[in-house]
């Protein structure tokens, strides 16, 4: 299926090259250009109306759903040697993008055996603790804003800059993965109406 999707894209490229070549030979010819336009329109609409993704021909499902009632969202927190929990600033994951990482975790993490889970968690813990150490020393590494500074392209979703108020000063010694569940209407009436469930914990040996 993935190779068929690649073929759809390659056909677009091939038709485009053929159109460019035909115009080069005879600027008044329109047959191949018409074919390219028709192909682009047909593929774009076919993808959209069948809702079958064929990137870069996309279905663009921008919040095309209903909010789950109740809704569940993951959260990763770090713990120190005294078991205090610390929020992890989304920039501490850089150069990984927070949303991509969380999406990967939600999709695949539970499929791994315990040893693999611990290897992954050890990698992630080392990653965020290194970032914490660098920030504490005033040597934060800039990955996403190294060229354009504050004018860098923001991520699609906003994220809270937890460490702007202060970087945790204790070394991280573990990670906890939670699932947080709430009903939007209930929580609108009472912000404390949120259930938290620990789904995985890793402690550095």
């Amino acid at each position: 299926m993935n190779l068929a999707k690649a073929l759809v894209f390659l056909t677009f490229v091939a038709l485009g090259l053929a159109a460019a070549y035909s115009i080069q030979r005879n600027p008044k010819t329109r047959y191949v250009v018409n074919l390219l336009i028709a192909y682009t329109i047909v593929v774009s609409f076919a993808v959209g109306f069948t809702q079958r993704e064929n990137w870069p021909f996309s279905t663009w499902p921008f919040i095309a759903g209903r909010v789950a009632r109740p809704a569940t969202f993951p959260r990763i927190v770090a713990i120190d040697a005294e078991q205090n929990e610390h929020q992890i600033d989304y920039r501490a994951w850089e150069p990984l993008e927070f949303d991509e990482l969380i999406a990967w975790k939600e999709q695949f993490f539970q499929q791994f055996d315990a040893a693999a889970k611990d290897r992954i968690a050890a990698y992630l813990l080392d990653h965020v603790d290194t970032a914490r150490r660098q920030w504490s020393a005033g040597e934060r590494r800039h990955y996403f804003d190294r060229f354009f500074g504050p004018l860098s392209a923001p991520l699609f979703l906003g994220h809270r800059a937890y460490w702007d108020a202060g970087v945790p000063d204790r070394a991280f010694s573990g990670l906890r993965f939670y699932n947080e569940t709430w009903d939007v209407e209930e929580r609108a009436r009472d912000p404390s109406k949120i259930a938290r469930r620990l789904v995985y914990e890793y402690r550095k040996p």
């Binding site: 329109i41 809702q51 499902p61």
Partner: peptide, 20 residues
């Protein structure tokens, strides 16, 4: 065609909501 690619993002975003 380029304008169509961009317009499609909006158009299909609306269509996706109706279909899904």
């Amino acid at each position: 065609l380029i304008q169509f690619h961009l317009a499609n993002a909006y158009f299909l975003s609306g269509i996706s909501k109706l279909l899904r």
